[in-house]
Amino acid sequence: MSDAELSELPESHPRYLSLRTRHRIEEGVEKGITSKQGLIAEGRGEAFDYLLGERTLPTADDAARAAAAHLLLARHPVISVNGNVAALVPEDVVELAAVVDADVEVNLFNRTDERMQAIVDHLREHGAGEVKGLNGDARIPGLDHKRAVVDADGIGDADVVLVPLEDGDRAEALAAVGKTEIVVDLNPLSRSAQTATVPIVDNIVRALPNITTHARDLAGRPREELEAVVETFDTAGALAEAESAIRGGRLESDAESDPRTNGERK
């Protein structure tokens, strides 16, 4: 879909948000930010989101709040960015990083110098200051591909890493070296979601702003209160509710019954 076609599409169109998201991914491919495999990943995620009713489940909201608490408690939080994240939510990445004082680092499976620089430049165009990832002077143990390459003073030193749209083997590798991992993944059965300390089963376009909202609310709270938010989060329950919603096809009726969704399909 071209820019002109999107501009002519009324916001009342039932698939407006979905089409706008697809358009951002298409633009990302054209700009050299998103890989062609990213198009496939977006389609897979969209299918799961459709089954979720394109809304934030109550437990996904709980997960976003727990994620915000982890990031605020962290010694060195880092937000990891791949091509799809850069294409879909660059402004949200920058805003969240500012609220929780996190570093932003580009990390790619299909890593080339040109693509790394394109994503760094794209994030800077959307307000980012320093963006890590270009140095690539450290490695995550246990990985043989280019996602292992990280900055020593970025993901290499982080204690809490937010990894939106993660692939499973790096999720496992980060957990193995003791890092607290927050994952945004629409598939509750993926290795990423199953491995994460905090799995947020939600669309990234809703999840990142939601984490930021919770972080603003929690900022300045006593450390004990933040620790309580972390400790009371039910990882297994969140995954179970998401899987049940997907398998059961509970759509608008649930959104209307829970006040946290405002009766809307978010």
Rank of each mutant, 00 (worst) to 15 (best):
P90E: 13
A128T: 07
L239C: 10
A63M: 10
G249Y: 12
L189N: 04
I211V: 15
A102Q: 02
V100E: 07
A118S: 08
V163C: 12
A86D: 12
M116C: 12
A242N: 06
P199E: 03
E54F: 12
N84P: 00
N110G: 09
E227P: 09
V161R: 02
D3C: 08
A207E: 02
D113L: 13
D167E: 15
E114N: 05
I25G: 01
V89I: 10
H214K: 06
Y16A: 14
E241F: 08
D167C: 11
D113K: 05
R15S: 15
A60L: 02
D254G: 04
Y50F: 13
L251I: 15
G248D: 07
L52G: 01
D159M: 01
E264K: 06
T21D: 14
L72Y: 06
G156C: 09
D202K: 00
D202C: 13
V183E: 06
E125L: 04
A148K: 03
N262A: 14
A68L: 06
R191I: 07
R75H: 10
P77Q: 02
R75C: 03
V29I: 15
D185M: 05
D92E: 15
E264C: 06
D49I: 08
K36R: 12
N203R: 05
L51F: 14
V150N: 03
K179D: 06
G129K: 02
A87G: 04
P164T: 08
A67Q: 05
L239M: 03
T261S: 13
A4E: 08
N187W: 03
R20C: 07
R115C: 15
T180K: 11
V198I: 14
R139V: 05
A69D: 10
A102H: 04
R265Y: 09
V104R: 01
E42S: 07
G129L: 01
T112V: 06
E46A: 15
P10C: 10
G248Y: 10
A68T: 01
I246N: 02
T34P: 08
V104N: 04
P90L: 11
K179L: 12
I33S: 01
R247Y: 14
L226K: 01
V99Q: 08
I25K: 01
R115P: 06
T56F: 05
R75V: 10
V99T: 15
F233K: 11
G45W: 08
L88R: 00
A240L: 13
I182N: 05
H76P: 00
V177R: 07
D202S: 10
A128G: 08
I33R: 09
L186A: 11
E42C: 05
A236D: 15
N262Y: 11
G32W: 06
V104G: 09
V229K: 03
A41L: 12
L9G: 14
A87K: 02
R206F: 14
V93D: 12
G45C: 09
G142I: 07
G178L: 11
D49R: 00
I40Y: 11
V163F: 04
A196V: 00
A245G: 10
A118C: 12
A176V: 05
A193L: 02
V106Y: 00
R260C: 09
P58V: 02
H145D: 03
I140K: 02
M1Q: 14
L186Y: 00
L143R: 00
D61C: 01
A118N: 09
V100M: 05
L51E: 06
E264G: 14
T235R: 15
D258G: 05
G237Y: 15
T180P: 02
R22N: 13
L174F: 07
